[in-house]
């Protein structure tokens, strides 16, 4: 948890002051959007909260729903 907070504090420190100084608000908004997602995922991982796998969903869609699959063996 400590490492997660340190890493994300570091990312914040090296990006945000420059963006504010240069008044790059659109860049700051995009950064904040991705930063929140990344931090939330990191927090879920550290707290052992299950993170759904996009590939499992895709596998379900392609194999189980569309029935597209290579034969095994």
């Amino acid at each position: 948890m400590i490492f997660l907070l340190l890493i994300y504090a570091f990312i914040l420190i090296i990006n945000v002051p420059g963006l504010i100084k240069r008044k790059e608000w659109r860049e700051l908004a995009a950064f904040s959007f991705l930063y929140v997602i990344a931090f939330a995922l990191g927090l879920m991982y550290v707290l052992d909260i299950p993170i759904p796998s996009p590939m499992k969903g895709l596998q379900h869609l392609i194999v189980d729903i569309f029935g597209i699959e290579y034969p095994q063996g």
Binding site: Y8, L34, A38, L41, G42
Partner: peptide, 12 residues
């Protein structure tokens, strides 16, 4: 500015 947050997402 997007590179490091993307790296965080990619790791997880």
């Amino acid at each position: 500015p997007l590179v490091l947050p993307i790296a965080g997402i990619e790791v997880i």
